[in-house]
Simulated scan of single mutants.
Amino acid sequence: MRELDETDLEILRLLVSDGRRPYNEIADAVNLSPPTVSDRIDRLADLGVIRRFTVDLDRSLLADGVSVLVDLRAEPGRVGDVRAAIEEIEGVEHVFVTAEGRIVFQARLQENAIEPLLDETIDTTAVREYDVSLLVDSTWYPQPRGVEFALECDECGNSVTSEGESARLGGEIYHFCCSSCKSQFEEQYEELQEAV
C-alpha cells in the first residue's frame, strides 16, 4: 500500500476547487497521463479519502428560506441519535459534533420554522438546550492543506504505514497495519458471515 504523496494532494486540491475538472487538465497540472490520474483518483476513492463528488450550491441565489446556525447540547449518550436525526432534516448543509456533546449545524430553513422542525424530527428529551442564530454569510474552504495520510488499522487501531495492507470484503475496503491484523480480521469476518 503506497502512502499519499504530494501528487495525490495536488490532485485533491484541483478536485476540491472543481470536481468536474477533466482528467486531462489535472494530468497536465501534475505532469502525469490522464489514465494515471484516473487510477490515482480511483485509489483515493477506494481508500475513502474521496467519499463522493457533489455540488456546492450558492443557496443565497435560491429562494428557499433563511440560513441559520443551530447549536444544540445533547443529553449524555444521545449525541449519535440527535446527530442522525439532524442529518435527515431537509436543508441541513453542515453538521459538526464537539467532544463535549454539542452539535452545531448550518441549515436553510423557512422563517420561524426551527422550533416546530426540531419538535417533529428530534426526540426533545435528548436535547438539553439549543440556540439559533441567523447567518448573514458563510464560506467553506475544504482544502487539503498541511495534511498527512493517516489511516487507522481496522483490526487494532494503529496507524497504517506504507507497509500496511488492504482487503476488500463484502464490497467494503479495509486497511491494516500488518498481515497479522489482516488475517485476524478476515478470519473474524468469515466467521460472522457463516453465522449469518
Results as ranks from 00 to 15, higher is better:
Arg59Leu: 15
Phe185Gln: 12
Ala85Arg: 02
Ala45Arg: 02
Glu190Trp: 12
Cys177Trp: 04
Asp58Val: 15
Asp119Tyr: 03
Thr125Trp: 00
Leu62Cys: 03
Phe185Leu: 12
Gly170Thr: 06
Asp119Ser: 11
Leu109Arg: 05
Gln188Phe: 04
Ala63Asn: 15
Asp8His: 10
Tyr189Asn: 01
Val68Trp: 09
Leu32Glu: 13
Glu187Pro: 00
Val127Trp: 03
Tyr130Phe: 14
Leu15Tyr: 03
Asp18Cys: 08
Glu75Ser: 14
Gln106Pro: 05
Ile114Lys: 05
Tyr141Phe: 15
Ser138Arg: 12
Tyr189Val: 02
Val82Leu: 08
Ala74Phe: 02
Asp81Val: 05
Gly164Cys: 11
Cys181Ser: 05
Val136Pro: 03
Glu90Asp: 09
Glu163Pro: 01
Ile26Ala: 03
Glu111Val: 13
Ile50Thr: 11
Ile26Asp: 03
Arg78Ala: 13
Leu135Met: 15
Val97Asp: 01
Cys153Arg: 05
Tyr174Gly: 05
Val70Trp: 03
Glu3Met: 12
Ile89Lys: 11
Ser159Val: 06
Ala84Asn: 04
Thr161Arg: 12
Ala84Gln: 02
Ala150Glu: 10
Glu6Cys: 04
Ser67Leu: 15
His175Asp: 06
Asp81Pro: 02
Glu93Ala: 14
Glu87Asn: 14
Arg13Met: 10
Arg59Asp: 10
Val196Tyr: 01
Ile86Gln: 00
Arg43Gly: 01
Asp42Cys: 02
Ile41Cys: 03
Val160Trp: 11
Cys177Ile: 04
Gly171Ile: 02
Ser183Trp: 04
Ala150Ile: 05
Tyr174Leu: 09
Val55Thr: 02
Leu4Ile: 08
Val136Phe: 07
Pro116Tyr: 09
Asp119Trp: 01
Arg168Asn: 08
Pro76Gln: 07
Glu115Val: 13
Phe149Arg: 07
Gly91Thr: 01
Pro35Ser: 10
Ser166His: 02
Asp137Asn: 13
Ser180Thr: 11
Ser60Met: 04
Ala113Tyr: 00
Val132Thr: 15
Asp71Trp: 06
Ala126Ser: 15
Asn158Met: 12
Leu32His: 14
Gln188Tyr: 04
Thr125Gly: 00
Arg145Leu: 15
Arg168Ser: 08
Arg108Met: 12
Thr161Asn: 14
Tyr130Lys: 06
Ala45Trp: 00
Tyr23Pro: 00
Glu3Gln: 11
Cys156His: 04
Asn112Pro: 01
Ile89Phe: 10
Ile103Glu: 00
Arg78Gln: 12
His175Met: 07
Pro76Glu: 11
Ala29Arg: 06
Ala85Val: 00
Glu88Met: 07
Thr7Trp: 06
Met1Cys: 08
Leu151Met: 10
Glu111Ile: 09
Ile173Asn: 10
Gly19Phe: 08
His175Asn: 10
Gly19Arg: 11
Gln193Cys: 06
Arg43Gln: 06
Val136Asn: 09
Val160Ala: 14
Arg145Asp: 15
Phe149Ile: 02
His94Asn: 05
Glu163Ile: 00
Arg128Leu: 15
Ala84Cys: 02
Leu135Asp: 08
Pro76Gly: 09
Tyr130Arg: 06
Pro116Asp: 07
Leu69Arg: 04
Leu117Ile: 09
His175Arg: 09
Arg13Ile: 06
Ala99Arg: 14
Ile89Met: 15
Gln193Trp: 00
Ile11Gln: 09
Leu61Ala: 15
Arg73Trp: 04
Val92Asn: 00
Glu187Arg: 13
Asp5Val: 03
Gly164Gln: 07
Leu151Ser: 04
Arg13Pro: 02
Ile122Lys: 05
Ser180Phe: 13
Ser67Pro: 08
Leu32Ser: 12
